[in-house]
Simulated assay, not measured.
Amino acid sequence: MNQLLAGLITGVLFGFFLQKGRVLRYDKQLGALRLQDMTIIKFMFSSVLVGMIGVYLLHDLGLAKLSIKATILGGTILGGLTFGLGWGLIGYCPGTSAGALGEGRWDAVWGIAGMVVGAALYAESFPFIKETVLTWGNLGKITIPQLLGINHWPVIGVFVAGGVLILRWFEKKGL
């Protein structure tokens, strides 16, 4: 029950930050797709960096266990193309469509319906996909630190430093 409550609280907080960051707005979505407004990219990139630090800190303190999934290039590429196509067609990504619906934007229902239909199609085609796409470029359960043979903190440091530089560059360019 505590896990469910923690999930609910973090979900509500994430939705609050999505709304406060103004990333639920259609003009921000369109700006990101046209590479003219990096608000969404900056928000998500910051979230990834904070999440990276948080997950590994919790892991090092023994409060969380890593569950690394296999890196499968075929599935990643096909999934990325499908995600991008859906985002481009509806103008919302999965998280922002739920948030936009919460703000009363009924056009977001199409995004949520698309996710449900996409999930159903994936479930129905999974036996075929498992035998084909999910075998293309299976690199196994790897992480960048494992690949380099070093501790995860120097890698995180490089990502955070690079991320800060990229975010500052976006700010200087007015993106």
Rank of each mutant, 00 (worst) to 15 (best):
G75N: 02
T76Q: 12
T76P: 02
T76L: 14
T76N: 08
T76V: 06
I77V: 15
I77A: 13
I77N: 12
L78N: 03
G79F: 06
G79R: 05
G79A: 13
G80Y: 11
L81M: 11
L81K: 06
L81D: 14
T82V: 04
F83R: 00
G86I: 06
W87D: 01
W87R: 11
G88D: 03
G88T: 12
L89Y: 01
L89C: 04
G91K: 06
G91I: 13
G91C: 12
Y92E: 00
Y92F: 14
Y92G: 11
C93G: 05
C93Q: 07
P94K: 05
P94H: 11
G95V: 01
G95H: 04
G95Y: 03
T96R: 08
T96D: 10
S97W: 00
S97L: 11
A98P: 01
G99V: 13
A100F: 09
A100R: 10
G102I: 03
G104N: 09
G104I: 04
R105C: 02
W106I: 13
W106F: 07
D107T: 08
A108Y: 03
W110G: 07
I112F: 03
A113S: 13
A113N: 07
A113Q: 06
A113I: 12
G114L: 13
G114Y: 08
M115N: 11
V116A: 02
V116P: 06
V116T: 13
V117R: 11
G118A: 14
G118N: 15
A119Q: 13
A119I: 03
A120K: 14
L121T: 00
Y122H: 07
A123V: 02
A123F: 04
E124S: 12
E124P: 11
S125W: 14
S125E: 00
S125P: 01
S125I: 00
P127K: 07
P127E: 01
K130E: 15
K130V: 00
K130Q: 15
K130G: 07
E131N: 14
E131M: 01
T132S: 15
V133N: 14
V133T: 15
L134N: 08
T135M: 02
W136H: 15
W136M: 10
G137D: 09
G137T: 04
G137N: 14
N138T: 05
L139M: 06
G140L: 01
K141C: 11
I142F: 10
I142P: 08
I144C: 05
